[in-house]
Amino acid sequence: MIPEPKVVNTIINGDSKQILVSERDSLLEALRDRIGMTGAKEGCNNGNCGACAVIMDGRLVNSCCVMAAEVEGAEIMTVEGLASRDELHPLQTEFLDNAALQCGICTPGFLMSSYALLQENPDPTEEEARFWLAGNLCRCTGYDKIIDSVLTVAKG
């Protein structure tokens, strides 16, 4: 029995969106498979890796663990909304200049988590940054240059 599709009204990166979803879709599936926004990545589909991190009504969430139907009326910010029209966000610039990415699949999640960290705690210690970002897995970098980049941006 295929469930009836459902319309979800949401705001994504400032734009109003109506998304036709299956009741079984996660927010990640709605973004990726229903409206083609593939910036958020699926690494585990159970909240362990952070590759799908987005910000929902100001709160950092793993979009694979949010049902699409839950975002009715919510504001979502994804990695596609991090840069302004004219320039990259300082986190994006620093990640690029400090080689904080290799394969890049974890990068959208790290950027969103780092953005949320700096919103919450604009001047974290190295230990605070490491604990905050412990929900994001990276298998390429050993985290060194990611942590360094976040701390550099925090210091301005």
Binding site: R32, M37, T38, V79, E80, L96, D97, L101, G104, I105
Partner: peptide, 28 residues
């Protein structure tokens, strides 16, 4: 230590990984 050519796409979510491909009539 120049920037990587694929860097901007990767920090803006535009880079197309295997699972990101979209085709007309796609099945899963």
């Amino acid at each position: 230590r120049p920037r990587r050519p694929d860097g901007v796409d990767k920090v803006t979510g535009r880079a197309q990984y295997g699972a990101d491909i979209k085709l007309e009539g796609l099945l899963y």
